[in-house]
């Protein structure tokens, strides 16, 4: 059996931080007093996310999610909920734009500290079919705050 070390490209995709968020998701669960709830799934691959927000005025006070899917979609959801707390809705939407830019290969976005742990997902941009996985929770976020 071939037990040689994994390809460099794959180790960029599956960084330890991503696997850590996949296996120990932050903010997984339901919110008692959610003001915004949205469910999204990707019918093609079956990835699912239920995102809940507690918004006070213009500020996201708390964010939780329940989800099922690949390491990329679930880690992205975990990282996103970490980042959203105490952000205003315009700030959150700006982050969604930065995340989308990073997924489409924008190197300045990949260095943007405001994206926090999500920068570990920069390698996903090299795997076009997986970009939708990383953006699933962000699409849920934009749906949630726009409805």
């Amino acid at each position: 059996m071939d037990t040689s070390p994994p390809e460099p490209q794959l180790t960029t995709l599956y960084q330890e931080l991503i696997l850590d968020h996949y296996r120990r998701p932050r903010n997984k669960g339901t919110l008692e007093q959610a003001t915004h709830t949205v469910s999204l799934n990707n019918p093609l691959c079956g990835d699912e996310i239920d995102l809940q927000l507690r918004v006070d005025g213009d500020v996201i006070k708390d964010a939780r999610f329940i989800g099922r899917g690949c390491s990329i979609s679930q880690a992205a959801a975990s990282m996103m909920t970490q980042l959203l707390k105490d952000k205003s809705i315009p700030q959150a939407l700006a982050l969604a734009d930065r995340m989308s830019a990073m997924m489409h290969g924008d190197l300045s976005a990949a260095r943007d500290k405001s994206l926090g742990d999500l920068r570990a997902l920069a390698g996903v941009s090299k795997f076009p079919v997986r970009i939708k996985c990383a953006l699933l929770p962000w699409n849920a976020l934009t749906d949630a705050v726009k409805t």
Binding site: P6, L10, Y14, C45, G69, C70, S71, I72, F127, V129
Partner: peptide, 8 residues
């Protein structure tokens, strides 16, 4: 996840 397997 099977999608991760398929990518690898």
């Amino acid at each position: 996840h099977p999608h991760d397997i398929a990518t690898i």
